[in-house]
Simulated scan of single mutants.
Amino acid sequence: MPGKKKIYFVSDVHLGAPALKNNREREMIFVRWLDEIKEDVSELYLLGDIFDFWYEYSKVVPRGFTRVLGRIADLTDRGIPVHFFTGNHDVWVFDYLPEETGVILHRNEFIAQINGKKFYLAHGDGLDATDRGYYILKKIFTNKTLQWLFSRIHPNFALLLAHKWSKSSRLAKMGLEEEFKVKNDEMYKFAERFLQKESTDYFIFGHRHQLVNVKMDSNTRFILLGDWINNYSYGVFDGETFELKKYKELA
């Protein structure tokens, strides 16, 4: 149906990633995508790691990303809800993004009812019950006292430390992983356990940088949104069906 409004989902853009050499090019492609969807988007879900690093001091925010922030603010100014999920790379969102761009902030999973369908939405970090090291790391990252201490570091040095950490992260090792087997993945196993308690139509996650759209049972699909590093991918729900797509600019 012409003019039909759609819900869009995207994750793992990793804007400004020091491990990558084409950050400006990727940002401009992402901006073009935001420009293209603005005429038919009714709601946008940014499911984490949109920024490779984000930290808000009380008076300072990271340099860059002006065009992306402007496009997001334009969408919310039009009355379009934009949901921003903190990921493991951009966990330190406080009040700047919600107040200045109008995004709806989610620090945890969120269950949405959309056109009679139930969506379980999350970035996906923290759903792997076997990754105890990450649970410890997340407690450190979200500790209020440690955040206060980090804020005392000069932003230039703080961002230098953050970028060094990012270069050593899984992002820098992409392409070296073993073949991805979705049903062996802990996020998929989490979804299986959740289904034993509650019915759900869609599980939609980021984090893994994989493109996955598989049936779990006759009513439920498990979705991984890919990324904007290799796949330039996103999800779209037209009110009836969900599709994973790659941005045509790079098709």
Rank of each mutant, 00 (worst) to 15 (best):
L160Y: 14
Y45P: 01
F242S: 11
K181A: 08
L105G: 11
T200Y: 08
L75V: 07
H163R: 13
I140E: 13
K117C: 13
K173W: 13
F110L: 13
R78W: 05
L244G: 10
L44S: 01
I111G: 05
K38V: 12
K38R: 15
N143P: 12
G206Q: 05
V103S: 03
L121K: 12
D238I: 09
K246L: 11
L195S: 02
A129H: 10
D128K: 07
L161R: 03
F141H: 14
D201P: 08
V10A: 09
F85I: 06
M28S: 07
K21P: 00
K245I: 07
T241P: 00
R32G: 03
T76D: 04
H89L: 06
G64R: 06
L121P: 03
Y188G: 00
M1C: 03
D90Y: 11
E39D: 14
K59R: 02
D201N: 15
F141P: 00
F94I: 08
F94M: 11
K138Q: 15
L195R: 14
F222T: 04
K183N: 09
A251Q: 11
R107C: 02
G16K: 00
V61C: 07
A17H: 10
F194C: 08
Y232P: 07
S42C: 04
R71Q: 15
G124T: 02
K245L: 15
E100L: 00
P98S: 03
R71W: 07
N219T: 12
Y232E: 00
V68N: 05
F30I: 08
D238Q: 07
G133L: 13
G70D: 09
A172S: 14
V212W: 09
D238C: 12
N22S: 13
R67S: 15
K197W: 05
K138D: 12
Y247R: 00
G239N: 05
T66N: 09
I50S: 03
A162H: 02
S151M: 06
G102T: 03
M1R: 02
S42V: 07
S199C: 09
P98T: 02
E192S: 11
K21L: 10
L146M: 12
F150M: 12
K197F: 10
V60S: 06
D125M: 03
F65I: 09
Y234A: 11
F9V: 01
T76P: 02
L97M: 15
K215F: 09
R193I: 04
S166C: 06
D128Q: 11
D131S: 12
P81K: 10
N156I: 13
V212I: 15
Y120T: 01
Y120G: 06
D131Q: 09
Y134V: 13
I140F: 15
V103P: 01
R208C: 09
M174C: 02
V61A: 01
L46V: 09
D52P: 05
H209D: 07
R193E: 14
V103M: 04
R63K: 15
G235E: 10
S42Y: 00
A129F: 11
K21E: 13
Y135C: 10
F94L: 04
M187E: 12
T130P: 02
V236N: 01
L149D: 05
E109Y: 14
E99K: 15
K5H: 02
F222V: 10
R221S: 13
Y188I: 04
R221T: 12
R71P: 07
L250Y: 04
K173E: 13
I136Y: 15
V214C: 14
F157P: 01
V61H: 10
V182F: 11
